[in-house]
Write a protein that binds this DNA or RNA. Structure first.
Lengths: 348, 348
DNA sequence: TTGTAAGCGTTATCAC
DNA sequence: GTGATAACGCTTACAA
């Protein structure tokens, strides 16, 4: 009952039970080749010493970590936390620990996290890699034996396993949906055009306009809510246009943009245009009118990524397979889904 | 450039550089007692072999993990993800890895996670412990040498370090705020009354009524949105009352309840009562009217918990301190903050 | 069935 | 300065 200085080891258990170290190990691991008697002795010793096997020592010996790293932008973002949850589930199902870290989408921070996890010899990594990260470094770690699956964004300089959303297609379909509801003047509002995903969605937006034969107007593409013309100013500018010059619909390319736009509209006098947002968010159906969205499927993405990673881990531990087999990377694209809730189906 | 079978070890580096193993260790750890020449040789070998120190081996030897575990209900919940982020920051500042896991607020799952992390000998744990968890087990692990700090909810059977929100006080102040705005008939809507936090808030609600001399009406306390009378039915029942019998204000005791209530109101014909929600949420200010909330401070909670834990870890590694000093647990209560946004300031 | 001993990749304590 | 060598706590041949 007194404060134990430190946890009991197998050696302690062995001594206490008057048996050899290996026997304790056998008992702990359920090896059948132990007599009933000794097994009982060992169990008694284990109980009386509150022994619990030290997994890090075991794993060191076995040369595996039984853990994977998951590096995403921000766990507070529902998209990433849902994706992470899916990975966590897959990992748990394989008795593997998933170690999560938020990079804040900063290249240097992500690199540090990856480095820290590789130093601990995690078996593999699932990474949403920030723009500008040192890709040579990533490649080096992969070559050194830590497989990585990239989610949401792919590295630019080299081929790898990837799981991405259908950003382009989703945006295309969404904007086409707006067009189908009679909109011709459609604005495109983005958080930061520097993000890969946002960029793809902008391209999808442009292509949809193009396909419908609608002229492109660069004034309607507000690319960065933080720099240049602020969203409020932009809204004011738009409102001051003649009625038949104003956009009748807004396409928001990510949830940050969506929130900013909704907040700005809420605080302005402007009549609400039709709105379609890329990425679903809680309460989207509670706002009046319900916000129509192009929903991603982070759960599917997480599952796919995890399965891909564990497949790699499996074939790594197997006898060296055909050397070129190793190089075949898989690139999955997960479909998005348009969810109409009213806001995009308005005809002005 | 060929696929390295496995990562280089210090032994490999030593051989490659033609020096002893210990020397490599010295170089890697920046020990000054190494000649310039050998240092250069070793660095060359390290570079050519792409050597990276195996931290798990190092940590095993040093008997520490340089990592802590964080077990919370659900990382997708903004309250917990924000709390976790604060812990993560504190840990990073101490070169410590924080390993996060979601218990889903299930006792058995939480126990498994705690067990898995203790088996890996994390240095300590920050836990939001689910109701019904085996507290004897927790106590055993703590006694065995893994300090734990409990956040959001405290264990019932034993004393420990805790960091809690001022659930009672926050609810009391919130409901008092409603009363100050002329409300007398105030309903209290909860997700599940089985949650400790929700219970405290319900008690705060009752006490506020009592303090104001307002009679308590058990019909207005809808304790469980999932069981018994569904929220929709309850709303209908309430609406059918005479106008001067209906509650004029709703107090929602957690964010799940808030969302459910807002959604139900949105889909009903009822005129909106005054609304006050415990726990802030994104878009609370975008909904019309802006939702007033009693905001918690998960960042402060995470910081406090982490600091408490690291303090314990510090005094553990120090020479055995006064044995009774060890037993003084700290119980912090973090204040909440009332944020009026309009919904609670309505006078019907 | 059981014990001894050699690792896993480090760090730490010695000698030299 | 430098290099053996013994830990750390475990698994796993290999003997007995």
């Amino acid at each position: 009952m007194s404060t134990t200085r430190s946890r009991a080891t197998m050696k302690d258990v062995a001594a206490h039970a008057g048996v050899g170290l290996a026997t304790v190990s056998r008992v702990v691991n359920g090896d059948p080749n132990v007599s009933e008697h000794t097994r009982a002795m060992v169990h008694a010793a284990i109980a009386s010493l509150d022994f619990q096997r030290n997994d890090s020592a075991r794993l060191l010996r076995q040369g595996i970590a039984a853990s994977i790293g998951v590096i995403l932008d921000d766990m507070a973002d529902p998209f990433f936390s849902t994706l992470n949850r899916a990975v966590e589930n897959e990992a748990t199902a394989r008795s593997t620990l998933s170690i999560t870290a938020s990079s804040n989408n900063e290249a240097s921070h992500a690199r540090e996290l990856i480095s820290a996890l590789c130093a601990r010899r995690v078996d593999g990594l699932i990474v949403a890699c920030p723009r500008g990260i040192d890709e040579d470094y990533l490649q080096k770690e992969i070559a050194a034996g830590t497989p990585m699956v990239f989610v949401d964004r792919a590295p630019l300089k080299f081929d790898a396993d990837t799981v991405l959303s259908d950003n382009f297609g989703g945006a295309f379909d969404g904007v086409t949906h707006l067009i189908a509801h009679g909109h011709q003047r459609i604005a495109c509002l983005s958080d930061s055009s520097k993000l890969y995903t946002v960029n793809q969605r902008i391209l999808g937006y442009r292509r949809a306009l193009e396909s419908a034969g609608i002229p492109y107007n660069s004034d309607w593409e507000h690319a960065d809510l933080t720099a240049g013309v602020s969203l409020e100013e932009w809204l004011k500018k738009i409102s001051s246009l003649a009625a038949d010059e104003q956009p009748t619909a807004f396409f928001c390319t990510n949830s940050r943009a969506s929130v900013a736009v909704l907040r700005a509209l809420r605080n302005s006098e402007a009549t609400w245009p039709a709105i379609l947002c890329f990425d679903d968010f809680e309460l989207a159906d509670v706002i009046e009118p319900g916000i129509s969205v192009v929903a991603q499927d982070p759960t599917a993405m997480g599952e796919l990524a995890a399965n891909l990673l564990f497949e790699r881990l499996g074939q790594r531990s197997a006898k060296q397979p055909q050397p070129d087999q190793q190089q075949k990377f898989r690139n999955s694209v997960v479909k998005t889904k348009l969810i109409p809730r009213g806001s995009a189906e308005i005809v002005l």
